[in-house]
């Protein structure tokens, strides 16, 4: 089986979209380095993929360890063709709750650590004049929402960062892909009632199809594109009166 991405790296791969992506990419013949905190989950992925998923236990918030871990992975893979940042957290935030601990965790995991990892991959790809740099952002990043102020801010930041990377790297033959999923059934969304929820398996299929098809921005599923077009253009004075 031929794969478009022989050497892939997924950060945030122990469950949900990341784990599914890792297994599916491995199924196409790719060697996939999977980074996550939980060794046992990573080992299970390695076993399920007949060893094509390579487990790397690591915490994205261990900023001091990240550069060396990235270098080790690239060396082990013998290069890098695809980088995906998928790590994300969305702790429940109640109405009228202003919780800096949760806010900080979301900004760090969803945005700051993404910047650190993607910077490393971007420099590698810029020097190589090749590669695909992918960030799993969210439709949530398109408007600031009352129910999840900092989650939406972290994803808005991630979307802007990946757009900037695209503007920086396209001239060097590097493709930068922003994925904007709507709600997906994963441990992160367990117990939540969200609209148009799709299984992680389908989300992963659509992401891979966007990666293989040359997209630079993809809504998952595609129906979110027209929906978000409308949502983006709702005037603020109307938005303040909604429960979105």
């Amino acid at each position: 089986m031929s794969t478009a991405f022989p050497r892939a790296l997924i950060v945030g791969a122990s469950s949900g979209i990341g784990a599914t992506l890792a297994l599916k990419l491995a199924g196409t013949g790719a060697k996939v380095a999977a980074v996550a905190r939980r060794q046992a989950e990573l080992d299970a992925l390695a076993a399920q993929s007949s060893g094509r998923v390579l487990p790397y236990a690591g915490d994205v918030l261990d900023y001091a360890a990240t550069p060396a871990l990235f270098d080790r992975i690239v060396e082990d893979l013998g290069g890098l063709d695809l980088f995906i940042y998928n790590a994300g957290v969305m702790p429940p935030v109640e109405e009228s709750e202003y919780n800096f601990d949760k806010d900080r965790q979301m900004i760090e995991v969803n945005f700051l650590a993404a910047v650190q990892w993607a910077n490393l991959a971007a420099a590698h790809f810029e020097a190589a004049r090749a590669g695909v740099l992918c960030g799993i952002s969210s439709v949530a990043g398109e408007r600031g929402r009352r129910g999840s102020p900092v989650y939406t801010a972290s994803k808005a930041g991630l979307t802007a960062y990946f757009e900037a990377m695209r503007n920086r790297l396209t001239r060097y033959g590097v493709r930068v892909v922003t994925i904007k999923p709507g709600p997906v059934e994963t441990p992160m969304t367990a117990g939540l009632k969200l609209p148009l929820m799709i299984p992680a398996d389908r989300a992963a299929d659509e992401i891979i199809s966007a990666l293989e098809g040359g997209a630079t921005e993809a809504y998952v599923p595609a129906i979110w594109r027209p929906i978000m077009f409308v949502v983006r253009n709702v005037p603020s004075f109307v938005f303040t009166k909604t429960n979105i």
Partner: peptide, 20 residues
């Protein structure tokens, strides 16, 4: 540690050689 310093893509003046 020095290895954790910021990174950059450097190139030669002929810009056919470069590295991080």
């Amino acid at each position: 540690p020095l290895a954790q310093s910021p990174r950059k893509v450097f190139d030669g003046f002929g810009f056919c050689q470069r590295s991080v």
